[in-house]
Design a protein around this nucleic acid. Sequence first.
DNA 1: ACCCTCACCTGCACGC
DNA 2: TGCGTGCAGGTGAGGG
Length: 289
Amino acid sequence: MPELPEVEHVVRALRRILPGRKILASQIKLPKLVAPLTPLRFNRQIKGARIDAVSRRGKFILIECQKPDRKGGQSAKSSTGKNKIVLAVHLRMTGKFLYLTPDDELPKHSHAIFYLDNDRRLVFRDQRQFGVIKLIDADSLPQTKGIKELAPEPFGDEFNEKYLKATLKNSRRTLKTLLLDQTKVLGLGNIYAAEALFRAGVNPFKSASQLSSRRTAALYQSIREVLSFAVDNIRGESLRAGFSYGEVFERFWQVYEREGEPCFKCGARIRRKQHGGRSTYWCPRCQRR
DNA sequence: ACCCTCACCTGCACGC
DNA sequence: TGCGTGCAGGTGAGGG
């Protein structure tokens, strides 16, 4: 159930194994995973493609591929050519990648299997079936619905204090809700949104437009710090069956899942409240306003 | 344009 | 043991 830092780790892991590999065939066991394509059409498009690179946009994993030409070889065209396609994968809540050896058994909830040219299988596993795999022409990726609306990358120059101030000023929603909106602030999920607000000492239920300039600056810093700390400190889960990525097992949360426990800063009991259908955790003393 | 609620799924922990 | 309830780190459709 990854937020941006976990996705970043998945990307780094895939980057170590996938570039240069060829996808011999795909097997899609859950058709809605690749909708609106059918598994058959999906496989026709991806079959024979060579993986060039793995990158990320927000929480989307982008596996960039070069399609073979009609004779079956790789296209002679360069990477700017029309034959570039991208697998845009969103893990949502429970999506994971596995990299299986021929001896490994296919675990439950393995919905997509990519047969690679080194005898390995790249498997997409997803218990809750919320995950998505889109197959997109590289050229149209920036205009793709779901991607074009995304806010600037949180580690890029465009996401700066000025941007956050303008974004908050325009919203009458609460800070917590706004931080979860990927078209406004990119990369946070329910955990890191709570952690960033705690770190900034700001109340999650405060109206976004009413946050003072000083506190907005603090929140901006906190968002970047929480995300980069997580990127630096989480570790992937290893599995006997090859390996899997997309799971955190080192936890360093200050408020998330700590209802009733003492705040590390002031000792007050951490509170939890349902807000917009999700749990919000905060320290009633450190985050009074 | 914005914002809220619900829906999408499986599985786990909990109380009775 | 079993069954009901609530909960889970994400987002999109559909409605007001």
